[in-house]
Amino acid sequence: MRILLDKLIINYPYFAAVILFIIGALTVLTRSNLFKKLIGINIMESAIFLMFIAAGNIRGGAVPILDEANPRAPYINPVPSALMLTGIVVSISVTAFALALIIRLYQSYGTTDARRIAEMKREVT
């Protein structure tokens, strides 16, 4: 038990990522407000970003630029950070597109509640 707890405390960024991921996934799946679904997606993606960044980090590591004076200094792995930059761009495009769709849905149904929209659709058909 003690060892498990220690592991959790040392690896707290991963633990935070797991909690964020669960919060996000639950928000997406259980909330019917379209905006809240979108926010849930964003939280979930942030959790994944956090996991990647934490994986590339070294405590006390420097920026990965060669230091002439001290060439053997530990530096953090730049690859996950670079990957997550791409991930953030993707997440922004998804958010923008989803917001555009929400606007169109609001214009035609007058609500941003997924359940009400489903009910209205059933009444039409």
Partner: peptide, 21 residues
Amino acid sequence: AAEAAFNYLILATLGSALILG
């Protein structure tokens, strides 16, 4: 179409987050 696309987008993004994970 907008509703179908929104549902698709949300579930597909859930999928991409899992793939990235």
